[in-house]
């Protein structure tokens, strides 16, 4: 299935790895049943990061199942918790 990806903030730099004509908006082919965290891996972002992913206008969690023709906007980590700097204190 075909999905649209929009990258924001410093994630725009990822497009060099993706060979997608230096655009922060591009399309991907993904298998039916693909979930959001698998999309993250496909575009070289770490799903463990607390990314903000908005699918067709709705913020979704990493286990959200992607549908054909959807538009995914991905923003750099905006929330903490994942890499708690105080874990070793």
């Amino acid at each position: 299935m075909r999905i649209e990806i929009k990258l924001y903030g410093h994630l725009k730099c990822l497009n060099e790895k993706l060979d997608c004509l230096n655009k922060n908006r591009f399309c991907l082919e993904a298998a039916q049943g693909t979930i959001l965290s698998e999309i993250h891996k496909m575009i070289f972002v770490n799903p463990a990061d607390n990314l903000v992913s908005i699918v067709d206008g709705h913020a979704q969690k990493p286990d959200y199942s992607i549908e054909h023709d959807c538009s995914i906007s991905i923003f750099p980590p905006m929330g903490g918790r994942t890499h708690n700097p105080f874990e070793k204190i």
């Binding site: 903000v52 908005i54 206008g57 906007s73 923003f75 750099p76 980590p77 905006m78």
Partner: peptide, 19 residues
Amino acid sequence: QALPRYGTDVLVNILNEAG
């Protein structure tokens, strides 16, 4: 990270995408 680089205006695209 986000605020030092883009300032508070980092929110335009986020709020826009979130409707």
